[in-house]
Design a protein around this nucleic acid. Structure first.
Length: 285
DNA sequence: CTTGAGGCCTGGTCGC
DNA sequence: TGCGACCAGGCCTCAA
């Protein structure tokens, strides 16, 4: 489930590899995932180059030399795997990478002029690729809320956001138009760190709790990026798995296990907004 | 305005 | 051994 830290890790990993490399060929094996006409998509990309990679929330934005933009969203199970000679840079869902590529989940394949390849894999086919012009890109980007690690996400800004909202806390954290990039795993981790129940009503949060929530959001995001995300693996070879936030998860996937902080209760799992939600019923208030 | 359900998908797990 | 039910959750759409 690539969230902001995973997508950022992919962005950095790919930026070191594929910039300014002419694209030789694009294979579209699952046209449904490409939101342009296949022929247009291929015509634009062929002989084009990626000159920069941006990110907004969980959306990857590849700036192309011809001033178009390739948007890639991995949704839940998308992967981007770059293979050049003996080097593999992979990111996204932690579905096994072992074995030959392309595999049955490789839906779009970019081949570069030096015979390296970028595979877009997606088990559940929720992800997409789309080429847009400058105006449409700006329109899409404008819909996102502030980046949690950007300077726009100040405590004052956060207080302002919260003051206008009622309802329950966690769905707000997941709302990309409010804050960009938080997904289900980190929303639970943020609430845990801030010692606030995910189903707290927003208008009952105290000033101190809002401060804690703001700090926890930045802390969790920063630490997860530093650890290269939760479901990301940076391979040198198929066995050498590096960079993993999994070991730092405090509530996600720990239902019915003792709370690691207070040790007074077991982590509880409920459904909130249709999503599995974990929290400690004792030390989260 | 908010909230909830359904849909898109496949694979893993669990109960029978 | 197999089969159906259910869950995983990003994000859009539609209904209430």
């Amino acid at each position: 489930m690539p969230e902001l830290p995973e997508v950022e890790t992919i962005r950095i990993g790919l930026s070191n590899k594929i910039l300014h490399k002419p694209i030789r060929q694009i294979k579209i094996l699952k046209p449904k995932l490409v939101k342009n006409k296949p022929k247009n998509f291929q015509d634009i990309l062929r002989n084009n180059q990626i000159i920069n990679i941006d990110r907004r929330g969980k959306l990857l934005i590849f700036n192309l030399a011809d001033e178009n933009f390739l948007l890639i969203h991995l949704k839940m199970t998308g992967q981007l795997i770059y293979i050049s000679q003996n080097q593999i840079i992979a990111g996204g869902h932690n579905f096994p990478l072992a074995g030959q590529l392309p595999n049955q989940y490789s839906h779009v394949i970019f081949s570069f002029i030096d015979n390296s390849h970028l595979f877009f894999n997606d088990l559940r086919q929720f992800g997409y690729l789309k080429i847009v012009g400058h105006l449409e890109k700006e329109k899409i980007v404008a819909k996102y809320g502030p980046e949690p690690l950007g300077k726009n996400f100040s405590l004052d800004k956060f207080k302002e956001i919260l003051s206008k909202r009622k309802g329950v806390l966690k769905p707000l954290l997941l709302n990309q138009q409010i804050i960009a990039g938080i997904g289900n795993i980190y929303a639970d981790e943020i609430c845990f760190r801030a010692k606030i129940k995910p189903n707290r009503k927003i208008n009952t949060l105290t000033n101190q709790e809002i401060i804690n929530l703001h700090k926890a959001t930045q802390y969790i995001m920063m630490k997860a990026i530093h650890k290269k995300g939760t479901t990301f693996s940076d391979y040198r070879d198929s066995d050498n798995q590096r960079g993993n936030f999994v070991q730092y998860l405090k509530v996600y996937g720990r239902e019915n296990k003792k709370c690691l902080r207070c040790r007074m209760a077991n982590i509880k799992k409920i459904s909130l907004g249709g999503r599995g939600t974990r929290f400690c019923p004792y030390c989260q208030k």
